[in-house]
Simulated assay, not measured.
Amino acid sequence: MQRLSIEYSTGTYPILIGQRILSTLKDSLEKEYTSIFVITDENVAEIYLDEVVEHLSDCKVFQYILPAGEASKNIDQYYRLQTAAIEKGLDRNALILALGGGVVGDLAGFVAATFMRGIDYIQIPTTILAHDSSVGGKVAINHEHGKNLIGAFYPPAAVYYDIATLSSLPAKEIRSGYAELVKEGLISGKELFEEMLQVSLVSIKNETLEKHILAGIKVKADIVEADERELGIRSYLNLGHTFAHALEAELGYGVITHGEAVAVGLLFSIHVSEAEFGVELPYDELKSWLEKNNYPLQTITFDPKKIMKRMKSDKKAVRNRIKMVLLKAPGKLLNKELADQKILNYLEIFKERLIK
């Protein structure tokens, strides 16, 4: 089992990564809790909920099962969870367990951040994608006008990443998660990025997957420790996300996965970067890898004007101007504000380039 620690302004929390570590959960709790509230979704509950509850048999445990999918990350489910927590008698010494992917982690974390002004929660990610969202303490719900617009910075008490849970993932979720890993590869530099592009997601080995997840978490951990509240370099973790969030909102949450949207967003960021800086970047290499691994590039269509409007609503926008993370090279990133007409031109050209 691998153990990392994240330092933040008022403390630290551990990240535990390994095979079949759910059985160690109770023994690893660093304090006693009056009750434990397990929040999961219907897909994860069917496979792992009983196991987690069984390992907590000596504790007072409640559970709540959400409908699976991005559409659950909304104000209505948030309110229902708050009501359930009150009705079940949770107090300030209770613990929330977020058992699932990024939707469960973001929503359960936001409930924890705001219930009685904040109680402990632990992230138990069960997807590749959640290696990213479970680390760093950003919790949120979506608004119809944009993704993650209502949220907080609220670090977990711990992250337990049982790699064995990934064996049950469908191909779509593997694609979704690996897009975020590729993003972290681009942030890290040429070597890790190129190594990741050698992977075939159909036949990926567990050792390779664990290696890349650990590498991705380390990239994020280093950045989060240096910039806890996204005042500087933490914004680099948004590479590809300005477009991705706009695309998700425009198509409707859940039509494509977050990671599939990020994959297209990475291509768009590279497309814009090449034009802005006059450099040659690995657009064709990344696009080829995405196509070989069945990312739905050819089926994604969008209206550039509508996407631009969505991008202007992104929480990273400044003075109603779109702000994007761009690359001069893998590992060399910067933020840049872009005028509306430039963005519109880039979107129109990219739309055609995407389907070639």
Rank of each mutant, 00 (worst) to 15 (best):
H145T: 13
S134W: 03
L239I: 09
S23W: 03
L290C: 06
D284R: 14
K316Y: 03
I122Q: 03
E225R: 11
L97T: 04
L347Q: 06
E32T: 15
Y295K: 01
R175V: 08
P304H: 06
Q19W: 13
K88T: 14
I36E: 00
I187L: 11
Y178P: 00
E260N: 10
S269Y: 00
V44P: 00
I47K: 14
I36M: 01
G177E: 01
E230P: 02
K205N: 09
S288I: 02
M311Y: 08
G254S: 10
A275G: 06
Y160E: 00
F268K: 00
H212Q: 09
D227T: 11
G278W: 13
H271V: 02
T242A: 11
L281N: 11
K211R: 15
E228L: 05
A45Q: 00
G69K: 11
F243K: 04
G109K: 02
D314E: 07
K351I: 02
G89E: 12
A171F: 15
L290A: 05
K183N: 08
V104H: 04
K287F: 05
N74P: 00
R229P: 05
Q82L: 14
A246C: 09
S188C: 10
A226C: 07
E230L: 07
A244N: 06
G240A: 07
L97R: 03
S134G: 09
S273E: 08
A152D: 12
T299L: 11
K190L: 08
E51K: 15
Y160R: 02
K336M: 13
V182C: 05
H271S: 10
K88M: 12
Y178G: 00
S9Q: 12
S72H: 05
A339T: 09
A98G: 09
V224S: 08
Y160F: 13
W289K: 00
V255K: 14
E352A: 10
E180D: 15
K218V: 07
A113H: 00
A215Q: 03
D303M: 09
I355L: 13
A112H: 04
L49I: 08
T10C: 10
D162F: 02
K316L: 09
K172A: 10
T126W: 05
I307W: 01
L95R: 02
D340G: 10
V44W: 00
N335D: 13
V262P: 01
N93W: 06
I96S: 00
I217G: 01
A317Y: 04
A246G: 15
K26L: 08
Y178K: 01
D340E: 14
K172D: 09
N294V: 06
Y253F: 15
A244M: 11
T126V: 10
D41W: 05
G259T: 03
T114N: 12
Y121A: 05
E195S: 13
L90C: 05
A339S: 12
K172T: 14
K351N: 15
P282K: 01
R353C: 05
R117E: 07
P125Q: 07
F115W: 07
N345F: 11
R92C: 05
V135A: 01
Q341E: 12
V61G: 05
K220I: 13
